[in-house]
Write a protein that binds this DNA or RNA. Structure first.
Lengths: 151, 151
DNA sequence: AGCAAGTATCTCGCTGAGCGAGAGAAGAGT
DNA sequence: ACTCTTCTCTCGCTCAGCGAGATACTTGCT
């Protein structure tokens, strides 16, 4: 136990970063007439669309920790805003496919685009070795949190 | 545009980390009968208490992005749960000081203590220079997000 | 085939977090 | 004195999300 101030400072930095990112998301959402949940849903839907996966209300609700009633309300909101579209699955007609509209992709661009550009620009200050260290560090920390959630 | 995969990977890592930390917090909150906002407030209050700073409802609400009515409700909830206590500031009697109760400290210790310990343990894999790089990196990224929020 | 059991989604009624507007109380400037 | 500003709280409201249950469709069993 030689230097405990150093790691604790890093822990607080990690937390400060997540707080800032959360607030950024909340403010973006509010500016676009969305709720934080709507934005999280949109991110999930855009990620899935990019990966070519089919998302149903059930899967979306599970990913966001909502029950079925809340999920229906969420999908209603997103559909009313013209961000997604419902479509019955012809294979299994109990299912509903959630299709992302063009408008949602543009909104996602608006959200990530600017911030990602700034983040990448800030990374230019760091050398390749330093970025590699940062990558290993973030990977290690993410692993710890994931492991802590599962026990 | 030589190597865009490296910084993008880091951006996704940052997002993955915040998602994991959010989920961890949400699960902890739900297990203790709190709402996400209550937990964020508690973290803010514990940090301020450790730094010896006085927190008022106004400051707390500003930090969490709530208006005055929402802040009063939040403080009411935390007080009802026995986590904090209101106390009029004798210097400026318009103000109310929010005092953290023992119970709140124990709650924070109990559940975040384990995670912090794991995080610090994982940091032992990294050398002092690497930790310093990680610190600079996180500081830079947090700064970018903060700056993006303010414009 | 027919019918129970399971699955996916939606409807209904309700609770409560958070908002806008503004009241009340205390300090600061003139 | 008397405005002006600051800090907190009250009132009434909206709406996200919950629990319970209805509905529509599929699957498995006999």
């Amino acid at each position: 136990m030689s230097d405990v101030a150093e790691p604790m400072g890093l822990v607080h930095l990690l937390r400060a970063l997540t707080v800032e990112l959360d607030l950024f998301g909340a403010e973006f959402a509010a500016r676009n007439g969305l709720h934080p949940t709507d934005l999280r849903a949109l991110i999930h839907l855009l990620d899935a669309a990019r990966a070519g996966e089919v998302v149903t209300p059930g899967r979306l609700g599970e990913a966001l920790g909502l029950n079925s009633a809340g999920t229906t309300g969420l999908v209603d909101r997103l559909e009313r805003l013209g961000l997604i579209r419902r479509e019955r699955d012809p294979q299994d007609r109990r299912r509903v496919r959630l299709l992302v509209e063009q408008r949602a992709m543009e909104m996602g661009e608006g959200f990530f685009g600017g911030l990602i550009g700034d983040l990448v620009a800030a990374m230019q200050q760091f050398g390749p070795g330093e970025l590699e260290t940062a990558r290993r560090f973030l990977t290690a920390m993410t692993g710890v949190v994931t492991a802590a959630r599962e026990k």
